[in-house]
Design a protein around this nucleic acid. Structure first.
Lengths: 217, 217
DNA sequence: ATTATCTATAGATCTATAGATAATGC
DNA sequence: ATTATCTATAGATCTATAGATAATGC
């Protein structure tokens, strides 16, 4: 006591940024393995891929599972951020979903590794308490209450639509030669119909030019 | 040569059956771990769970991955066998799909571990060259050619419907209190509509009494 | 006599930590 | 002086195999 060592709690900024970079390198390396479906890698494999000393791992995470979980969550968040950018100005839920589903395929083509992390996380990701899932659920519920979508159970519609989206992304991932935009548009028409939009309107919603795919930071 | 040692290639039957039982115990133990999503277990964990000597493993499989793959495949085959039993007499593809989807939820309630193995295998299972997937694809193609379903690309419809089915099974697995039959029926109506069946007919197809869930051997 | 299974173990791999080094801030 | 990172390593697993035992067939 009595020894003043600078502003309490104030950590040097450069060191902070360096630590954040190291952590990000670990997360990105882990995503690389998750994208290949390799969940059984060792901590050393990950630190080597991140080009980071082995012991450094323990300065950021306690267990390998903790890192893998953060890696999968970060991939989902990145994906959600892209979709949020694309739909932020839209008010009609049918249009929000039309855009979201049409872009899903196109995003897969631009960020296949990111999508692969999500695919390898399995369908359990649909139950994750992520902002994206919660947002989609609220949108469906509101659209059903307003009579824009039919039915009154948002969960069934959400899980069916979300599962279908994963299925189509899996299809695009496995078939690089397919026209992702065309596949996604056909797929979006079907999902909208499933949600209660008429066949004619669903087709019209998906016939307009799709928005641009935003860059990932 | 010259030394006759009984019928060539004829192995004692009892030993065969014992070996098959041991292998089945290993596969079932592996399925137990897969149902919990634990793909990182050791060979010793599996042999312990199967109540089998550690070294015995190597008499049946070369690597852990080989066993886990067979375990997941066996779960899918068991599931396919149940669905095949339920739909074998039906000729109208719309009815085949209606029954299949309606039963998916009910099968989940009767064999949750089996379904959990499939769920934890991820959406990649939709791409597996399994009899069930091939069969579903052919059914959709035939129904589209006959004008019973709309569209002309069976793969998009297959992946969307299959993914949706996984999503709903995930939902039922996570919510034991839900009425699986009611959820599956609502879900089946939506999928049929997505495939091109009119809303009225889809509702009618899913309003009849569902068949009994068969027992697993 | 043959084959499946079991037990024990050597060697490989992996995790967690301790102590040394490098980077930054004062 | 402080904090992040790195290197080295002890101890804990895990895998693969060798040799012993048990079950079955002749």
């Amino acid at each position: 006591m009595g020894i003043a060592a600078g502003p309490a709690g104030a950590t040097p900024r450069r060191a902070d940024r360096r630590k954040a970079r190291t952590r990000a390198a670990l997360v990105r390396a882990a995503q690389g393995f998750l994208a290949e479906g390799r969940t059984g890698v060792s901590i050393r494999d990950i630190t080597d891929a991140a080009d980071v000393g082995f012991g450094t791992f323990y300065g950021h995470f306690e267990t390998k599972e903790q890192l893998l979980e953060e890696a999968a969550g970060a991939a989902l968040d990145g994906y959600a951020a892209m979709l949020a950018t694309l739909t932020e100005g839209l008010t009609d839920p049918a249009e929000v979903f039309a855009v979201s589903f049409r872009m899903a395929g196109r995003l897969q083509r631009r960020h296949p590794e990111l999508v692969r992390v999500i695919l390898n996380s399995g369908t359990a990701i649909l139950l994750s308490d992520s902002g994206m899932v919660r947002h989609a659920r609220a949108d469906i519920a509101a659209a059903q209450a307003a009579g824009r979508f039919d039915g009154d159970d948002p969960d069934i519609a959400l899980m069916a639509a979300g599962g279908a989206m994963l299925g189509v992304m899996q299809m695009l991932d496995a078939n690089p030669e397919l026209d992702a935009g065309a596949v996604a548009d056909q797929f979006a028409v079907r999902i909208l119909r499933m949600l209660g939009i008429s066949a004619d309107e669903a087709a019209a919603l998906c016939a307009t030019a799709p928005p641009m795919v935003p860059e990932l930071p």
